[in-house]
Design a protein around this nucleic acid. Structure first.
Lengths: 124, 124, 124, 124
DNA sequence: GTGGTCTAGACCACT
DNA sequence: GTGGTCTAGACCACG
């Protein structure tokens, strides 16, 4: 459970944590039922504050990606995802426009989308 | 040049302006060489601060989507976009993961991407 | 005596046990004088800690819903409840407000209250 | 905008704030579109921390009761409430059971519910 | 001046 | 030992 955090960028740290955990689940590195690292463990290990990790976990819980097992620990939730969030759809629309203006043709853009969906890296 | 601004959402207003102009260019509603409305005009017309529109235009200029006209106006830049920005690529990766976890299969996801690329709406 | 416990929710487990026993008594499934399952039995049967069940029983005893039997068991207490607890009254006030804001008119809200009082389910 | 906060009780402060604002909206003391006090103002005025009020506002925003206007300030959202939250329904079921066991007959219980819905006080 | 974010350090409820 | 809550003080993005 190694996180790559960019302290300088303008994406909030708790968002970065949230994003990487979501990607980790989608990639199968984190399986449903598996325990996530403790808030405190992740905080000290990453050199950030407990509250920040707390916020990330709270967000993930609210979105239904993870569950806080009252017996201690936090667990990856099993499936049941409903639909692609509205705000992601909007962001996707903007990105598609940027792709067109960047000179990417339809096939090229879809190839990138496919690669990311399949969890392959995109040649930077 | 009608803007739909959401004062409640968590996307900064200048970002919303920037996004909608980018999408407008990609959709062909704004053609290369065409003049954009004055900062002041857009501001009063949309009921927002001049500084906010200024920031959006500055951002678009910096990204190369628009250019300052010699006579003081602002015009849509022609082509020339190089590659999909790094930060958009990262965002796309997150969205692809969310799509997987939302139960969307590859075909469904790519269909959405295609529709957005082609400028069609997505059935909500 | 089957308990439905939600380990993920934010209601403490001992509270859930307490609530379900209270509802069981009100519904007539548990009659005054009837013996409750042993702490240990309920704990192992539900896969939770003995201390947790203990806490629930202690709470119920303190509230007067159950009594310690001379022979070491625990039995459902008979009637005698005085008034609706202050904290429940406050919670009810909040819920009534939520109902208003949810667009529920007075008749609809009271119908739900009646159904729950009479032990009927509420159509989801 | 006076809040009555119980620092000793086991209800989190941010929850108490949230509850009282919800009740304030339902009672018509806070009307849609009206500005709520600043986070800092409410914090200093109530002698609590900014982060605590922040959390309460974030919760209210997430529930759709208020909107953070990006131009500064926070505003009461207009209507549009969907349905009574599931967790409130469960709590209501428990309270109805407590009422029965407290010796309240159906009419008495419904009278209390009606009074609270109509915003009248209940004789302690 | 507004809300959003982060930190360091602390206490508490729950299991 | 876990997550949940609170504090005091600070910086920043936004408008």
């Amino acid at each position: 459970m190694l996180l790559h955090l960019d302290m300088a960028g303008d994406t909030p740290i708790y968002q970065q944590i949230r994003n990487q955990i979501v990607m980790g689940i989608a990639a199968g590195e984190l399986r449903p039922g598996e325990r996530l690292p403790t808030i405190r463990a992740l905080a000290t290990e990453s050199g950030i504050n407990v509250m920040t990790v707390n916020k990330a976990y709270a967000l993930l819980k609210q979105e239904g990606y993870i569950n806080a097992d009252r017996r201690g620990g936090t667990v990856v939730a099993g499936g049941g995802g409903s639909t692609l969030p509205e705000r992601s759809l909007e962001a996707l629309g903007v990105i598609a426009s940027e792709a067109r203006l960047a000179g990417l043709d339809r096939a090229g853009f879809l190839e990138i989308c496919r690669a990311l969906y399949d969890g392959e890296g995109v040649g930077s």
